[in-house]
């Protein structure tokens, strides 16, 4: 049922999916990590409570999180064209992926950071640590295992989003599944794509869990 051309198509699709997922995850963290930290620090229980900033940033995050990805994908097309020069292909898909994932990442980071024992933060403040030092030397390292598990969840979520971008010609495994499985009714190809996506999710999640367990010094 699969011709040789099909295999090379799948190979390209897999690479495109991995490319979109990894690049988007990294960029989503570049934005989401600092934003998440701002949310934690400015929280009313945080080390620099600032209700105004907290509310503004929180609202933007919630706003972006509440738009379904499939709509966001279409809605941000002008932005995508401006940044990537085109709206089709995997590079173009990175733009909506990052816009959708960054706020999600920010909330994940926020929840991991809030798990850090308040007492440890208080102790570092008592030693004269600045806000930035508390974030970089205490909150992030102490929350590391939880942050890594969160990163695995974020990666798999972004992987799922990337498949959705097939609808607008975004490239990758999802694109193949939609073109062949939906438009040409080749169910077998669609099933293969789904199986590959399922496997990818399992692999990413498991890798995340293993690294998190390895680096956590609390359990010995």
């Amino acid at each position: 049922m699969f011709s040789e051309g099909m295999f090379s198509l799948m190979g390209t699709g897999l690479l495109e999916t991995l490319y979109m997922t990894v690049v988007s995850t990294v960029m989503a963290y570049l934005i989401g990590l600092p934003v998440g930290m701002i949310l934690v620090v400015t929280d009313k229980e945080g080390i620099r409570p600032n209700p105004t900033i907290n509310r503004i940033v929180g609202s933007i995050v919630n706003l972006l999180r509440s738009v379904p990805f499939i709509i966001l994908l279409v809605a941000v097309m002008p932005v995508t064209r401006f940044i990537a020069g085109t709206t089709i292909g995997s590079t173009a898909t990175v733009v909506p992926l990052v816009i959708a994932a960054a706020p999600f990442v920010a909330r994940m980071v926020e929840s991991s950071a809030k798990e850090v024992d308040r007492g440890v933060i208080e102790a570092s403040l008592s030693m004269g640590a600045s806000t930035l030092e508390v974030v970089l030397k205490v909150i992030i390292p102490e929350a590391k295992p939880s942050l890594i598990v969160g990163a695995a969840i974020a990666t798999t979520t972004i992987l799922g989003y990337s498949a959705m971008s097939g609808v607008v010609g975004g490239g990758g495994l999802g694109d193949i599944a939609i073109r062949y499985g939906y438009h040409r009714s080749q169910t077998d190809i669609m099933l293969v794509m789904v199986v590959i996506l399922v496997l990818l999710v399992q692999i990413f999640q498991e890798i995340g869990n293993i690294i998190a367990r390895k680096c956590d010094k609390r359990i010995r």
Binding site: E122, L125, G128, P141, E142, C215, D216, R218
Partner: peptide, 29 residues
């Protein structure tokens, strides 16, 4: 605050650092 050390009921050590690195922490700061 560097001239005022503090210890706590729940110790409040950095769990992801060794004993040595915990003691290094205030010096790092």
């Amino acid at each position: 605050r560097r001239s005022i050390g503090m210890i706590f009921q729940s110790f409040n050590l950095l769990m992801q650092r060794t004993a040595l690195d915990n003691v290094c922490f205030p010096l790092e700061i």
